[in-house]
């Protein structure tokens, strides 16, 4: 009974996150629009490159494969995006964190459930967009989607979300040391998107780039899930990838725990 009660408080937080996402739906729609502009740019970019190269394949991608990658990568990047870093920083800087420290609730779990609640609706919408896009291409015989691929994608994307949450959380804990970090977050965000393959597929940079990025967590945020979906990786590689995702999740959890413990000693609970 006690355990159930303890879980219930976090479900309540999840509900708050969900309500929040409904309340601020215009913000989400505008955000979604913003991820279409890069797609338009990529469309013209690749059309120009392919018509002038005179070959059927560039970097081992056909024209349609490249466009499919660009669109899927943009949507997946949107799906795994996080925007709570500023809130964490504010809580640390302005002393809002104190409220969670005196109540029997964990700030980390509060953030996870709140994130999950806010993501729920958005993730479903993006997922439907992805499926709609793939269905359109399947009808045109450019790609084949199987049920097992789709299910594996759902698993991989959930782990990618978890991993992205942990990375962002670890980054926002910087607030204990640096007071003004919005610019830093922006820079980190852009770099993360690029090295996770959110704009160009990583393999166009060569085999070395792929093998290096395979050992980094970012590879598993966008590039890997997209390739699961478009069938570029085999089942064996998918399972190996899932294991690496899990390993990174554990590593980041331990890292955050350590970082938080030393950061808390610096917390000054300003204001009030």
């Amino acid at each position: 009974m006690r355990i159930l009660e303890a879980q219930y408080k976090y479900l309540k937080v999840l509900g708050i996150g969900f309500k929040h996402s409904i309340e601020y739906r215009a913000d989400f729609v505008l955000g979604l629009l913003s991820c279409f502009f890069p797609i338009v740019i990529q469309y013209y970019l690749w059309t120009a490159i392919f018509t002038h190269s005179g070959t059927n394949s560039v970097f081992g991608y056909t024209y349609n494969q490249m466009l499919i990658y660009a669109v899927l990568a943009a949507l997946v990047t949107k799906l795994v995006s996080t925007d709570f870093e500023g809130e964490v920083t504010n809580d640390v800087r302005m002393g809002g964190l104190s409220k969670y420290l005196v109540q029997p609730i964990s700030y980390f779990f509060y953030r996870i459930y709140r994130f999950a609640g806010e993501k729920l609706l958005h993730a479903m919408i993006v997922f439907i967009l992805i499926m709609g896009f793939l269905f359109f291409y399947q009808v045109n015989n450019h790609i084949t989607i199987t049920l097992s691929q789709t299910l594996l994608f759902v698993l991989v994307i959930m782990l990618a979300l978890m991993l992205k949450f942990l990375i962002s959380y670890a980054v926002s804990v910087i607030a204990f040391w640096i007071h003004e970090c919005n610019g830093l977050f922006l820079a980190i965000n852009v770099i993360t998107v690029i090295i996770s393959g959110g704009i160009f597929p990583i393999d166009i940079f060569g085999d070395t780039a792929v093998s290096i990025s395979k050992s980094l967590p970012f590879y598993y945020l966008t590039y890997f899930p997209v390739n699961v979906l478009n069938g570029k990786v085999g089942f064996d590689d998918i399972y190996a990838g899932v294991v690496i995702q899990l390993i990174w999740i554990v590593i980041f959890m331990l890292f955050i725990k350590w970082l938080w413990r030393i950061g808390m000693k610096r917390y000054i609970a300003s204001g009030g």
Partner: peptide, 9 residues
Amino acid sequence: LHLNKHIYE
């Protein structure tokens, strides 16, 4: 307040 009810079980 209801949230506090759950937080404090």
